[in-house]
């Protein structure tokens, strides 16, 4: 009796139409049906933040979102951040520059969360960055460098240097 639903949404500006089992999460739709594997499945229960994407510009957990719920909405994943010529987003560049990862598995979620965190204006202090990035767990413990990368990218974006 599982419903199959036609779900239409934009991923990184590209219109997609997918026929999905009603149980399909946005995370599985992105990875297994749209074949964009940058978004990671960590805990799959809303605790680690590895699956963070933007829906209509706001960061959400794709593992706790049904694909059907984003019908008609705009989804942005880590693949949608860089410019078409390959120029990295300021947050991506800062993560590379400040070595803000070790194994890298949490990194797409960290970066998607950081881009939103900066846009929200929650980067006024290192404490604010830690508070508003707390939904993204890094088991390697790269937090000090992540905070540096977010702080630096925020400053550069605010100064309009990138």
């Amino acid at each position: 009796m599982a419903d199959r639903n036609k779900v239409q949404f934009k991923i990184n500006g590209e219109h997609r139409v997918l026929e999905l089992d009603s149980r399909t999460t946005l995370l599985d739709a992105i990875r297994e049906h749209a074949f964009l594997t940058g978004t990671k499945k960590g805990c799959d229960q809303g605790q680690c933040g590895a699956c963070t994407v933007h829906v209509d510009g706001e960061r959400v957990l794709s593992c706790l979102t049904l694909a059907a719920q984003v019908d008609g909405r705009n989804v942005t994943t880590i693949e949608g951040l860089a410019q078409t010529d390959g120029t990295l987003h300021a947050v991506q560049a800062a993560f590379v520059e400040f070595d803000a990862f070790q194994c890298g598995y949490c990194t797409p979620g960290q970066i998607m969360s950081a881009v939103a965190c900066i846009r929200e204006g929650h980067t006024g202090s290192d404490d604010a960055i830690r508070e508003y990035m707390s939904g993204n767990i890094c088991r390697c413990g790269a937090y000090p460098h992540i905070v540096t990368a977010v702080r630096t990218a925020a400053a550069r974006l605010q100064e309009g240097k990138v």
Partner: peptide, 9 residues
């Protein structure tokens, strides 16, 4: 409460 992502949802 929760995290920034969850509060957006």
């Amino acid at each position: 409460a929760a995290s920034a992502q969850i509060r957006n949802m």
